[in-house]
Design a protein around this nucleic acid. Structure first.
Lengths: 340, 340
DNA sequence: TTGTAAGCGTTATCAG
DNA sequence: CTGATAACGCTTACAA
């Protein structure tokens, strides 16, 4: 009745009750070979009876290892990132690691603050998808001094000197463009995100490469940019559709953009998948329920990206020696939508 | 050149360099009033120069407080939960708390394992959305002994003896049904989830209450259940549509179900929002892009639920005395869809 | 096979 | 205003 909280049992308690030393208890609990079977049994038995559980905070402190990885993302709520973190958690769990999360809200200062907090907490490693505005990577490179490995994913720095996992944009874009060309399209429009985005450049570059390889002439007026808003998308569409020779197919940077684009096209009485065909980079779960989906989406496997990032990080954490940075590319896959 | 990692500065180092005691350093760094301005300055100055950062693992250990809250969810990847965790993280961050996450995958054993891990790590509190199969709550009630407060959210136990935050199902359902009745519907069908789900019972109960209040007779054949699969939903729809007097409106348990239901209805040549009207409990982000969306969705504000849960938990953590459990209901709101 | 004791970095108590 | 010291719980040489 009203049993008040008594403090948790420690190895010290166990030692006292058994009249042996704490070191013996500690070793017994860890199945250390030098401990006599009898003592070992007695210790483990009593430990169980008392409901002993090791105090991890003490162990973390003593071992200088926390079995924790920190994850920094712009927005937890975006489907892509939620998928990634799910993958990270799965792998971490498998290896008995904990996952600490922080969302930067695309704010560089916040990102720095999270890094500091993680560092002071002695996380064993960090996985990060950069804030949109992060230019300077000093707060990450500084972690090297502290032996905290970092793996970037999705929004990664361009330098190959970092560990990173990212969607293989050239490969994916190549797939998409080639597919459209096979279907006979010769004027393919692009709707990129903002010009500053690394992915915009990569997409455009690949687009030009493919056309060059096919010896088609490149018309840069087919490459539009948008700010990712509905209005921005409409403007991009308008610029494309008002060309003397408008595109017969459009590759849009993601599902949000493509849905707005399709909506715009339909408002102009263009029949989806008939008068004009859309392909996008997938990041929404339910395109299969759409009446007018893009003809295909490039699946980017967010969960798999998270898994790979976690695996890479654990590899770094557990390697004795400094190992050279790895760059992992996740190849997309074209998913075709039936449309309802 | 190749400056090898030297270990991090500690207050001990600072003390030595300044020829003062560690306690003085500690106090100086904390702006303790008893420290002379001069010493304080010297200490803070040197600390900065050395790049001193307190070792949180030591502090956690010593203080028996980790400023960390653990969050247990079935699936990180589900939009609802991703939204909730985003809210939790936001509030936690505001209060300088860290967030540790674990996904149970709806597996009770896994859920228990996470609880144990969190307990051993001395998290200051836990927020949990129960696994679908959790009946026994012992692994949570046991936390009381350890002074670890728990807040349940979304999938909560029925007892009011626990802190919990959940969608106000009666209120929401009442809104939905009343709305449909105002629109003239007299035969309203329900598609619940599985019978075992608490929400199914609540929905059905409220449905009956409303009808009773309006003195309409209750026809239980209008209440269907499904296993949340596309096929299950189709069966439920079939049973409803094959009634002698089929419903003119249907309230479905969530967006996934309602989309399948709408698809089914359309396959039977019923015009959405005309021959039959759908309302559902929202959990998908982009119903606005659907050609045939439900007429309305009950928004459940996942992020807000997360925020409330975090606030409630922090309240519990920071209250000196045991405070009685609180039950917070989040009221939904009808969101009307235009349909494209 | 077991015990002793140092130490991880910090805070807190008690003296001075 | 400052210092010495114990304590938090655990691991790990080093001794015995």
């Amino acid at each position: 009745m009203g049993m008040t909280t008594k403090k948790l049992p420690t190895i010290k308690e166990i030692a006292k009750q058994l009249n042996i030393s704490v070191s013996t208890v500690s070793r017994a609990l860890h199945d250390h070979p030098s401990i006599g079977l009898r003592t070992k049994m007695r210790v483990q038995q009593l430990a169980k009876e008392m409901g002993y559980e090791p105090n991890q905070t003490a162990i973390f402190f003593k071992q200088r290892k926390t079995f924790t990885i920190g994850v920094i993302l712009p927005y937890l709520i975006e489907d892509f990132f939620a998928g990634a973190i799910s993958g990270i958690e799965a792998i971490a769990n498998e290896h008995k690691y904990n996952v600490l999360i922080g969302q930067s809200n695309d704010d560089v200062e916040r990102e720095k603050a999270i890094v500091t907090a993680f560092k002071n907490q002695r996380v064993d490693g960090i996985i990060v998808s950069l804030s949109k505005h992060t230019k300077n990577l000093d707060h990450f490179t500084a972690l090297e001094k502290y032996q905290i490995p970092v793996v970037f994913f999705d929004r990664v720095p361009s330098s190959n000197a970092f560990n990173k996992v990212a969607f293989d944009m050239p490969h994916g874009t190549h797939q998409a463009i080639s597919y459209l060309m096979e279907k006979g399209h010769r004027r393919i429009g692009i709707i990129n995100g903002p010009k500053e985005m690394k992915s915009s450049k990569e997409r455009t570059d690949t687009y030009m490469e493919v056309l060059q390889k096919k010896r088609l002439k490149i018309d840069m007026s087919l490459v539009a940019y948008c700010d990712l808003t509905k209005e921005g998308t409409a403007e991009a569409m308008e610029s494309l559709l008002s060309l003397k020779q408008p595109p017969t197919a459009i590759l849009a940077m993601n599902d949000y953009v493509v849905l707005d684009a399709i909506q715009y096209a339909r408002s102009k009485k263009l029949k989806n998948n008939k008068d004009i065909v859309f392909v996008s980079y997938a990041n929404l779960p339910i395109t299969q329920y759409l009446e007018n989906p893009p003809m295909a989406s490039l699946e980017q496997y967010p969960k798999k990206q998270g898994e790979k990032a976690a695996e890479l990080l654990l590899e770094q954490i557990n390697s004795e020696t400094e190992i050279s940075p790895r760059n992992i590319l996740i190849q997309g896959e074209m998913i075709f939508h039936k449309g309802k």
